[in-house]
Computed example of a mutant assay.
Amino acid sequence: MVEYSLEKADMDLFAVYQVIYSGTDIEMWFDWNTRLNDTKFTDHCYWIMHEDVKIGGAIINSDTVIYPFIIPPFSDRFKFWDILLKCCKEIKHINGMLHDDVNILLSSGFKVNVVRQVMCRPADINNKVDLPDGFSMYALNEAVHVNELSKVIISGYAGGIDHEIYGVPNEDQVIKDNKYLMEVYKHRNLSIYIVNEMNQEIVALCIAGISENMPLGFAEIGEVCVLPQYRNKGIAEFMLRHIIATAFDYTPVVKLCVTVGNQAENLYRKVGFQPGPRFANMSKR
């Protein structure tokens, strides 16, 4: 009888195996050491063993599986998941699944919660466009009233796929999330907001910057939001291109992460963001 089992792995060796055999850079880190460190956030690392031979590995923390991979010459992905799920019957969540594994897990009683992808493009000082007439841009910092910003974000995302998936946040949660992002980017804050000159209403915002902890010093766009009645005027494109241009003095790359199905992805592609591999978070039905 063939014996399969889980065996606790050394975190450092596991990280090397995972980076090499995962076959993709989901986070688009573009850096060996960064990818190693990204894997080493926990010591809950396990080999999937066939008798005394490693055939794969995964981080298994309580009821969640993360970063699974297969080790050649073993190549049967159906068998891999059958083994892993039999060894870990309490598993309810599996994060960071690529397309091939999604199809397998759908037939194993899991459902897709959300599909995401990271997108990157070069920072470039020659990338600006003009802000449409009748609007003005200002730096977004702690002096801007948080309640105004939260109302723009709630209205700007209303009816979108993120609210559909995650639910509609209350104002307190949005304020908390905004404060967190501003704290993350305070090292090099690139955030801006747009005002309608006629009524001084805040109509759009983009929270972006460079975190002290961001690998390779890349810039990141955390929020892009335009009120529904001000869309299709070129405001969002202006904000994105402004961030891409102003980031040039500090970093070679601007990153963002988008929920697949968000119409904003078309705009991101238009301004030159290159998508990485799509990955899904899944849960047991």
Rank of each mutant, 00 (worst) to 15 (best):
P72E: 02
I83C: 02
F80L: 04
V144T: 08
I94N: 02
S136I: 11
M11W: 12
G109Q: 04
L6M: 05
F248L: 05
L140F: 06
Y138Q: 10
K179V: 15
Q274V: 12
V16E: 14
W29N: 13
F14H: 06
Y138W: 09
D162E: 09
V168D: 14
S62C: 08
H145P: 00
N196R: 05
R278T: 08
R241P: 00
N61Y: 05
S107C: 08
P275S: 11
M1E: 11
I161M: 12
P72T: 03
I153A: 12
D130S: 15
R285Q: 10
R121L: 15
H44T: 12
V102A: 05
R278D: 09
T34E: 07
T24C: 11
M49E: 02
L181G: 01
A123T: 15
T246F: 01
V168R: 15
T39R: 08
Y4C: 03
K151E: 14
A247E: 08
A219W: 01
K151N: 12
Q200M: 06
F80I: 01
A123I: 13
G234L: 05
A204V: 01
Q200E: 09
D101Y: 04
I48G: 10
N147G: 07
G160T: 11
M239I: 00
N196Q: 06
C257Y: 06
L149T: 00
V195E: 06
D82S: 14
D162L: 02
K86A: 14
H242M: 06
L181D: 10
V184I: 14
N147H: 09
W29P: 02
Y230H: 12
Y180L: 13
L84Q: 05
D249W: 01
L13D: 12
E237D: 08
G57E: 05
N147F: 04
V168H: 14
